[in-house]
Nucleic acid binder design. Structure first.
Lengths: 143, 143
DNA sequence: AGTTTAATATAACAAAGTGATATATATGGA
DNA sequence: TCCATATATATCACTTTGTTATATTAAACT
């Protein structure tokens, strides 16, 4: 029930790219690695996944780097997480009913669906811009 | 981002125990294993965890078995999941701020907190009785 | 043209997590 | 005393995940 490091790295990377690049400006992974303190080798793989999902654009060659493919307010957090770790599926059987042994008789299915929906909805509500501007506020812990 | 099999098994086990036992009636793991088709050996471990969290009571000896420690409406689904896989923590750093490298400067923390809250709230809303009586209804898939 | 910087693409490896099985002991009823 | 059951560890195999390594490709700059 953990959000993998890969997903968390992806969010931090995107934040960094959003901050240090612009429409005509790119930032190299070397820079991003320095800012985020994430292993550069690891980021390289992650960058490819983010690129393949059209969230960032890679400019090859000397002076190259990455920039966002579209403005930060148009990038939903769900896009980032999905690009990094695939579709949000708290259990396999939600999408593929046939992969479920109990099949139709599963009594927990609706519960799983609800958990999944709540997470998905939340990540669709917020954008990269919201994250960058600290627009996300959790309820205060009750102590 | 998966709900582990262990957690799912725990829910199914509890459902089965709720159904086939009563205040003065117990059901053996042998029975439960037959009903749920979960490996008995595996269930034994799970049963201990559920017992240690006071969700079920174990009666040793011949003719023994398990029964719920309290009525199903008083057992929250969060209790079951927590007993099976520990506290719900989508990321480590929520409870232990010191385990987070970015410490106070983490920009994603509030997001993680919200995800965690939504899952926790949902699992606290519903009880084992709700699950048994199919009171949980997910929003219809939009197709 | 050639060198350099950086992205792109695989591959290989190590560590951790997870599911499952095995073995041994304790308990209490018949 | 015997047997069915819970209880408690230990072990093993498999998968996932994080990390590092090795080439290859692309473009800019000298």
């Amino acid at each position: 029930m953990k959000l993998s490091r890969r997903a968390r790295y992806a969010l931090r990377m995107m934040l960094s790219i959003a901050r240090y690049s612009g429409p005509d400006e790119r930032v190299s992974l070397k820079e991003v690695a320095k800012k985020t303190k994430i292993s550069r080798r690891y980021m390289e793989q992650l960058a490819i996944a983010l690129k393949n999902s059209d969230l960032i654009v890679g400019i090859t060659g000397k002076g190259g780097g990455y920039r966002l493919s579209r403005p930060a307010p148009e990038i939903k957090l769900a896009d980032i997480v999905t690009a990094a770790i695939g579709p949000i599926e708290i259990v396999e059987c939600l999408d593929h009913a046939d992969s479920c042994l109990q099949a139709a008789g599963c009594e927990c299915r609706e519960l799983y669906q609800q958990i999944n929906d709540r997470i998905t909805d939340l990540l669709n509500e917020y954008t990269l811009a919201d994250l960058a501007n600290k627009k996300i506020k959790a309820a205060l812990p009750k102590d």
